[in-house]
Design a protein around this nucleic acid. Structure first.
Length: 592
RNA sequence: CGGGGAAUAGCGCAGCUUGGUAGCGUGCCACGUUCGGGACGUGGAGGCCGGGAGUUCAAAUCUCCCUUCCCCGACCA
């Protein structure tokens, strides 16, 4: 069926909606694809829904092609499974909770690991049934603190989530690899550029995890890439590794120095460089010679608050994202003046390893950045107002309770694999593959009998693609100054025919005839048959809407030709009306 | 959660300082002229001025509370 602009439920906006910041959001609203319904929740209009469905079907076919089976859970879920896994509390405020008329607790599913685990437990009990791959394409709910970028981060969104069930680690690895390969094909088919980066397992528990990121300045994730080898990782997951021990036998004895009015690292470094007796033998002191001790409070899921001290070189800051990612589901809170007041061992501004550590007087757990290796010497706080200590050697003069790798990652930092330099980029997470392991199977009791008749805990993987987010990401990846610019595979229509003449001059007849021919050939046709609308408006709308092939039935019709524009390449060609349908269909076959 | 800005017609905005009949552009409807790059004229329809409380004879306008949106930070499978 030919869709006619005169009756398609569509209104394009001439101006940008004021609340839309990122291009995909702006253009999807302006071109009449989506409409905001509630904070972080969007209505799909006909053009948007067609695009969504094409994206959804590419993902569905990608999953079906590896033998995954589609199921469908409700969004409204009972509390108990999430209570059992701990996520009723671990998910915190991000979980939409509700009660029925009898005050029984429910939630709107943010993700479905528990439900899939229980479903498999319900039906299967033998290793012979494994491996099993199930997936669904489902609406998810997360009460995000700050929805952003339209479809990019909503509170209601659609995700394809798959789960694999295996009897052992080798099986899990095969399932993981199969999904990873399927994702590569899916994103290639969607026309979405991506990088695969190592990721944190986060609150999900489990071990190996990789993210598919679409590189994009508007992205919320930061990742690193090595300029030398193929290492890439989410900054949260970067591990710099242990620093080799250093010989400290030539370092002079630790010495306390009177350092008045040095509240910042920079003032401290300046003081050391300015004082003849403190000068470095070979060079100037830098912030990297100081050891900064940062205090935070950790809030455990049970509500318990634990202070934590982190020692890092003074030229770095603690990256809160990296810290949270490593400690999840523990949350990090600021350590403020009232907390200083309640621990008399801490001298604000002059905290040193002398007071920190579980065996020291503050009793606060003290973890070091791996750069603070055994044998390294530092300028750091002397736990005394107005005093610092120099030549304080790790292992000789102080000890810590362990290491934690949460310092900010910077451009040109060394690659953990090859030592080359890292560059930092931003991206949008469009997919995630994840070896969950036995966490959910254990707590929910998903066991099967192995070939020896013994109960074995099933090992699981989970794999997600944000479907609605992928639509936005494709828009983000492909748009230009004029509007959206869909790849052929996901465009809401294949061909957009514009009647650019008066209509009674033969243009309408020719356009309709072409539309019918293309429609009969199986192409999806949008025909701009609006009367009383000037050609300029139709051209602008066609560019905004972004269908890849635009055919103009205008002044050329009198000479027996249409004008064909390639929205993606920006090229224009004339084709004879007599064989227009055939050549457009041909072009589509080669494009697909 | 902190700091800043904002909410008036589908969309983009003015009006608020100094309280008194709700305005502009665009979009929409009708008629006419136009018809290859967001044409023009004439006439129309469309708003509980985000919600609630207060001050006042009178509130879009002043005060307080709430909600929502945007920016920065915090947070975020």
């Amino acid at each position: 069926m030919i869709h006619r602009m005169s009756s398609v439920f569509l209104r394009t906006l001439r101006e940008n909606p004021v609340d839309a910041e990122v291009p995909s959001h702006r253009l999807l609203v302006r071109a009449g694809y989506i409409r905001r319904a509630a904070p972080g929740a969007y209505t799909w209009l006909p053009l948007g829904w067609r695009t969504f469905q094409r994206v959804e079907n590419i993902i569905r076919q990608g999953m079906n092609s590896i033998g995954a089976q589609e199921v469908h859970f409700p969004s409204l879920l009972p509390r108990e499974p999430y209570e059992a896994s701990g996520r009723w509390t671990d998910y915190g405020d991000n979980l939409f909770r509700l009660q029925d008329r009898r005050k029984v607790d429910y939630l709107l599913g943010p993700t479905h690991e528990e439900m899939f685990t229980l479903l498999v437990k319900d039906l299967y009990s033998s290793y012979k049934d494994l491996p099993l791959w199930l997936y669904q394409i489902q609406t998810k709910f997360r009460d995000e603190a700050r929805p952003r970028g339209g479809l990019l981060r909503g509170r209601e969104f659609v995700m394809k989530d798959s789960y694999s069930f295996d009897i052992d680690d080798e099986g899990l690895q095969r399932s993981y690899d199969a999904h990873r390969d399927a994702y590569i094909k899916i994103f290639e088919c969607l026309g979405l550029p991506f990088v695969i980066v190592s990721a944190m397992s986060g609150a999900m528990g489990g071990s190996k995890s990789e993210e598919f990121l679409f590189p994009c300045e508007n992205g919320e994730d930061t990742f690193v890439r090595c300029t030398n080898c193929d290492y890439s990782a989410n900054t949260e997951a970067v591990r710099i590794g242990a620093t080799a021990d250093v010989d400290s036998s030539s370092v002079a004895a630790a010495k306390v120095v009177d350092t008045p009015s040095t509240p910042t690292i920079q003032t401290l470094v300046d003081l050391f460089n300015g004082r003849q007796d403190l000068k470095h033998q070979a060079r100037q002191w830098t912030a990297g010679d100081t050891l900064k001790n940062v205090l935070v409070n950790l809030r455990h899921p049970d509500g318990r608050i634990e202070p934590l001290a982190i020692g890092i070189p003074g030229d770095r800051d603690v990256d809160m994202k990296r810290l949270e990612a490593q400690l999840a589901p523990v949350e990090v809170e600021p350590f403020d003046d009232s907390h200083f007041a309640s621990n008399s061992a801490l001298v604000k501004g002059y905290i040193g390893p002398g007071s920190l550590g579980q065996s020291n007087k503050s009793g606060i757990r003290f973890l070091l950045d791996p750069r603070v290796g055994i044998g390294s010497a530092w300028i750091t706080g002397a736990d005394k107002e107005g005093h610092h200590v120099m030549n304080l050697v790790h292992g000789r003069d102080f000890a810590a309770d362990g290491f934690i790798d949460v310092a900010e990652v910077r451009d040109d930092d060394p690659c953990p694999l090859c030592g080359g330099s890292l560059i930092i980029k931003r991206g949008i997470e469009i997919g995630h593959v994840f070896q969950l392991g036995k966490k959910y199977a254990e707590v929910l009791g998903l066991n099967v009998l192995d070939k020896n008749g013994k109960q074995q805990v099933v090992t699981m993987g989970s794999y997600g693609i944000g479907v609605s987010r992928a639509v936005a990401a494709i828009a983000e990846a492909t748009h230009d100054d004029l509007g959206l610019c869909w790849p052929h595979a996901v465009a809401p229509f294949d061909v957009h025919i514009v009647i650019a003449g008066k209509g009674d001059d033969g243009t309408a007849f020719a356009a309709n005839k072409l539309g019918s021919q293309l429609d009969e050939s199986g192409l999806q046709v949008l025909l701009d048959d609006r009367t009383g609308v000037s050609p300029g408006v139709k051209f602008k709308d066609a560019e905004l809407v972004g269908i890849p092939c635009i055919v103009i039935a205008g002044r050329g019709v009198a000479n027996g030709v249409f004008e064909v524009r390639d929205r993606i390449l920006g090229t224009t060609a004339e084709i004879e009306i007599a064989n227009a349908a055939a050549s457009i269909v041909d072009a589509y076959v080669t494009n697909r």
